[in-house]
């Protein structure tokens, strides 16, 4: 299958510190890719480079064939991004935020599309609510809504379940699956929760100190490890040491 995300020898250094070390990775269309790693492993740096927020020191990456550095105006049109602890314009309502981000992404009739997306995410009641009045879970939904308004081919989620309660986590997991299956979105998800990976992802990669130490399809992973506990043991064996 044609990769929608191609990463080749990607390196990001800050002086003597190497945050990402020659990462090479292909993500095929329709995958839900779980990027596992301790805090500080380089997962967010990877997403920041793929969303053109950061420039790599060396190496290259492209989204749907558009280079994230030289063709960033094109590659950004293909992506949606939900940062960890998503924060929107607090004084604006959900609808106003969505119209703003939708219009910036070139969405025609952003108002009606906003409502459509809120219904898809099962939260049309949030339309007129201001962001500062919302719970963490509600904000996360609006954050997800702003990322999919323009029907991107690839959706980047950075620790999407961070700070959510068990119910919020389950709802978000269902939404991710829905977006992947119904909207045909390829999803690249950073996480450090093994349980999320086994329940949501179709393939995984494990990053340790900027280096990709393991990559496999979820079927292969589950066949090899059988359950979350065994996978967790394996993860801790390839990513040793204290979390940053």
């Amino acid at each position: 299958m044609t990769p929608v995300i191609r990463i080749k020898e990607l390196t990001k250094s800050y002086g003597a510190f190497t945050a990402l070390d020659r990462l090479t990775l292909d993500i095929a269309k329709g995958e839900v890719f779980g990027f596992l790693g301790h805090n500080g492993a380089g997962k967010t740096t990877t997403i920041h480079i793929l969303t053109s927020l950061l420039r790599p020191t060396t190496g290259s990456a492209d989204i749907m064939g558009a280079d994230v550095v030289t063709g960033s105006m094109v590659s950004r049109g293909h992506i949606g991004y939900v940062p960890e602890n998503v924060r929107l314009y607090e004084t604006l309502t959900a609808r106003e935020n969505l119209i703003f981000f939708g219009e910036l992404s070139g969405v025609q009739e952003a108002g009606s599309r906003a409502l459509e997306v809120l219904e898809l995410l099962e939260c049309p009641d949030l339309e007129r609510k201001k962001i500062f009045e919302m719970s963490k879970g509600q904000r996360q939904r609006i954050g997800l809504a702003q990322a999919i308004l323009h029907k991107p081919s690839v959706l980047f989620l950075d620790e999407p379940t961070s700070g959510l309660d068990p119910l919020g986590i389950r709802q978000l997991r269902n939404l991710i699956t829905k977006l992947n299956q119904q909207q045909d979105m390829t999803i690249f998800m950073n996480t450090h929760l093994i349980s999320e990976v086994s329940k949501t992802c179709t393939s995984i990669g494990v990053l340790n100190r900027g280096k990709l130490v393991y990559q496999a399809g979820i079927d292969e992973v589950m066949m090899r490890f059988g359950n979350d506990r065994a996978l967790e043991d394996f993860y801790l064996s390839v990513v040793p040491g204290k979390a940053a």
């Binding site: 969303t51 053109s52 927020l53 105006m73 094109v74 950004r76 049109g77 992506i79 991004y81 940062p83 602890n85 998503v86 924060r87 929107l88 314009y89 607090e90 981000f101 910036l104 992404s105 070139g106 702003q146």
Partner: peptide, 11 residues
């Protein structure tokens, strides 16, 4: 507000 991150990922 970290909204700059979201704005700068737009085309």
């Amino acid at each position: 507000n970290a909204t700059l991150q979201l704005v700068l990922t737009r085309p």
